[in-house]
Amino acid sequence: MIEPQNPDNGIIFEFKHSKEVSGLDKTCERALKQIRDRRYSEYLKNDGRHNIMLYGIAFYKKRYKVVVEKLKEA
């Protein structure tokens, strides 16, 4: 989790390892799902940050994939 200088912004990263290169997409989605399910953004929201970006990052050996999503306001 990163708290940038701009008090409205926040960034959450979740890193996952994939067992095969073809699973990178699904692994990124699992990372984003974990951020949402475990409510990692609550700390940032309680700090008054509302422009929160979520990064699901999956690795397989030296390959990787990154999926970025803006947290939707409830």
Score class of each variant (00 low, 15 high):
I2G: 01
G23M: 06
K62R: 13
N46F: 05
D8L: 04
K65G: 04
I35G: 03
V68F: 04
D8V: 02
M53L: 12
N9D: 13
K70Q: 12
E29L: 15
D47H: 10
A74N: 15
I57T: 03
V68N: 09
A31P: 00
H50C: 04
Y40F: 11
C28M: 10
D37F: 00
I11C: 05
D25L: 14
M1G: 06
M53Y: 06
E20I: 06
K61G: 04
F59I: 02
A74I: 08
G23L: 09
Y55I: 02
N51V: 00
N6E: 11
M1R: 07
E29K: 15
R38G: 05
Y55Q: 02
K19P: 05
K65V: 03
A58V: 02
Y55D: 00
Y40G: 05
D47G: 06
N6H: 12
S41M: 13
D47A: 13
Q5D: 10
Y43D: 10
A58S: 12
K33C: 09
A74G: 13
Y55C: 02
P4H: 05
L24W: 05
I12V: 08
V66Y: 06
F13P: 00
H50D: 04
C28D: 06
A31I: 03
D37W: 01
P4T: 05
V68P: 02
M53S: 10
E29D: 15
E73L: 15
I11Q: 07
C28K: 05
E14I: 04
A58D: 00
Y43E: 12
F13I: 02
R30N: 14
